[in-house]
Design a protein around this nucleic acid. Structure first.
Length: 260
DNA sequence: ATGTCTCTACTATAGAGA
């Protein structure tokens, strides 16, 4: 089974790139983040023509998660349990979409960045990650084979960002953010990229500004976490940097994981 | 710290978010 996660930074702007990527890589499942559109504006038919059924969790202008799959699946959740909407909003952000395939459950996610909205914005990021931890605990306690895949907006360790790429107090590297990522690992989840490449820089995101990609000044914030029985089947985990080198690319590259 | 990109809004530029 081949699974990928890709923050596309507007799916409408990137339809052509996602289509050609699907044709070339032929994953069984692709999780998309930052759709930046409502479900009705998602280009569903462009992916259906390639054999992928879409489940869409949309929101106007921001956020959004979708699952594209050529394997049959059913939806299990369209939000993390226990989260309350941000002040002034009527619904929680479109950030978590959970589906079940015959042998496993996949949580596709887009965690809050946490650098906007001051201390309150950062607190909401941490609360969101706490809700993700709680969800993972529930599923693991039920012995459900689980994949969490998406943009976690956390650089777990110092090899996961280029030197000087972020201020020490950036929400992506603050100790509180990293502690929550470690908690997910301590629950028994395996970081697929790091399981096969334990040391050295790996990046999945390069800022549009200041020639970051050309200088390879990136961050690793997109992750695929595997529960124990799935981790035993891990055979490959890679970042597709070629996608980031395209014309008018997303600022994120796909992370691709193969399970035996 | 921000040189870019994408979105939205009193359709055309500026603010927000990443």
């Amino acid at each position: 089974m081949k699974l990928a996660t890709w923050n596309v930074n507007s799916v409408r702007k990137r339809v052509g790139q996602v289509q050609s990527w699907l044709s070339r890589e032929a994953p069984d499942v692709l999780i998309l983040q930052e759709l930046k559109c409502e479900a009705r504006d998602f280009p569903e038919l462009d992916f259906a023509s390639l054999g992928y059924r879409a489940e869409i969790l949309g929101q106007k202008a921001y956020n959004g998660v979708a699952v594209l799959s050529r394997l049959p699946f059913e939806v299990r959740a369209r939000a993390l349990p226990g989260l309350t909407p941000p002040p002034g909003a009527e619904a929680v952000d479109a950030r978590y979409l959970e589906i079940a395939l015959p042998q496993l459950v996949i949580g596709g996610l887009y965690a809050p960045n946490g650098n906007s909205g001051g201390i309150e914005g950062f607190r909401r990021k941490l609360s969101w990650l706490d809700a993700l931890i709680a969800r993972a605990k529930t599923l693991l306690a039920a012995d459900i084979p689980l994949i969490l895949a998406g943009d976690f907006n956390v650089c777990p360790d110092d090899d996961d960002l280029a030197p000087g790429a972020l201020a020490p107090d950036d929400a992506l590297v603050r100790p509180e953010s990293r502690a929550r990522f470690r908690t997910l690992l301590w629950l028994g989840l395996t970081d697929a990229l790091r399981a096969l490449t334990p040391e050295g820089p790996i990046y999945t995101f390069w800022d549009y500004q200041a020639g970051a990609f050309a200088a390879d000044r990136g961050l690793r914030i997109d992750h695929v976490l595997l529960s124990p029985t799935l981790a035993e089947r891990l055979v490959a985990a890679q970042v597709d940097r070629a996608a980031r080198a395209a014309e008018q690319p997303s600022d994120h590259a796909p992370v691709v994981v193969t399970l035996d």
